[in-house]
Write a protein that binds this DNA or RNA. Sequence first.
DNA 1: TCCGATATTAGGACTAGGTACTAAAAAACA
DNA 2: TGTTTTTTAGTACCTAGTCCTAATATCGGA
Lengths: 196, 196
Amino acid sequence: MRRSKKERQERLNQTIRENPFVTDEELAQEFGVSVQTIRLDRMELSIPELRERIKYVAEKNMQDEVRSLPIEEVIGDIIDIELDKSAISIFDVKKEHVFKRNGIARGHHLFAQANSLAVAVINDEMALTGKADIRFTQPVKENSRVIAKAKVIRSQKGRTIVEVSSFVGSDLVFRGEFSMFRAPSAEKEEIDETRN
Amino acid sequence: MRRSKKERQERLNQTIRENPFVTDEELAQEFGVSVQTIRLDRMELSIPELRERIKYVAEKNMQDEVRSLPIEEVIGDIIDIELDKSAISIFDVKKEHVFKRNGIARGHHLFAQANSLAVAVINDEMALTGKADIRFTQPVKENSRVIAKAKVIRSQKGRTIVEVSSFVGSDLVFRGEFSMFRAPSAEKEEIDETRN
DNA sequence: TCCGATATTAGGACTAGGTACTAAAAAACA
DNA sequence: TGTTTTTTAGTACCTAGTCCTAATATCGGA
C-alpha cells in the first residue's frame, strides 16, 4: 500500500477527471498497482470505463453543437410573438455569458437578445439594425433569467422603431430603442456546393 | 443490390456524418446488407470504426473547450492597445456570424467587438457598459475583416466615454459611443464546491 | 506472535465492436 | 457463357473492458 487506498482513490478520481482518455492499464502503471485494483477503485468510486467516458464527452459535444446553432440564430427563446407588434423572449445567463472576474453578464449578450428579438418581430424577409440607443440599467448576474419584451413603436416606409425592455424578475436591466430597416436585400451569394 | 454500391456508400457517408455513434450492425440493418459489406464500404471510404469516431468527436470537444473561452472573453483580436487612450481590434466575419438568408453580419457581433474593445481599453479591474449609442452605417458581408478603433473621449469619476468606429477597408460600417463605468464590483459569489 | 479483517492480485470466462484475412457464393456485364 | 465485381460467411485476433472466484498480502489489535 503506497499511501492508503483512500489517497490513491482520490488521486485516481482527479487524474481521470483531468484526462478522461486514460486506460486502466496506464493508471495501474502510474499508481504502481495492478489493473484489478484500479478496476476495484473505479467500481467503488462508480467511475465508468474508458469507452463510456469517451462516449459521454463526445455526446456532450454533440449536444453543445445542436444547442449552439439555434442560440446563434436567435439569442434567447421566443415565447410569444405577434408579428409587427410585439415579442417576448427569455434568456438564461449561464457561466459562459459572464465575466469570470465578477459573474456579471457581458453586455453584448443582453444586446444580442434584444437585437435578435427586434429582428424577429419584424414581419419581413429581412431586417437589419440601423441605429440603436441602449442602456444597461442594472448588472445581471449569472443564473439570472432575462425576459426581453419588444414592442414595435412605429413603422414607416422601410424603417421600423422597436423598443426592447429586458427584465430580471421585476427589475429593468436593459432598455434599447432599435431603428431597423428592411434590408436593401444585398445580392445573395450562390451557395458554395464545392465545400463539404 | 438495392441501388448500386455507389449510392449506398454515399448514403452511408452521410448517415455516419449525421450520427457518428452508429454501429456497423445498425448500418447493415438500415441498408439491408451484411455487416461485412458495411465494413468494406467503410474501408473504401476510409471511415474509421465507431470507437475512433467517438474518440475523435470527444477530442474535438476537449480542444473546443480550451479554445472557446478566450474567444468568448475578447471578441476579435486586439492588435494594439494603449490603456485609457485607444485600442484597435480585428474581427473576421465568418459564415457563423452572418444571416443565412443574405450573408450580412448580424448586428450583435459588430456590437460585441466594439463593446469588448471598449471594455478592454479601460485600465481598471472592472468596466461595465452603462449606455451606448450605436449606428450600423453599412451592412458587412461574410468574409470581411472588420477593424474596430476605440478612443477614450473623456473620463471622470468612474465614468468613461469610449468612442468606437469600425471599418471594412476604408468604409465605416459601425460607430458607437459607449458610456462605461468602473463596476460597482457586485459581491462575488462563493465558488460552489458541491457541484462536480 | 497469531487471528481476522481488509486490501490486493491473479486468473478464467465472457462482451462489444471491431481488424485482417481467406474463401465461397451471387450478381452484373459483355 | 465466362469473367469480373460485389457481397456474404467464417475464422482468428484485438482492446478494454465486466463479472466472478480464489489466492495472497498486509495491517491492526489482543
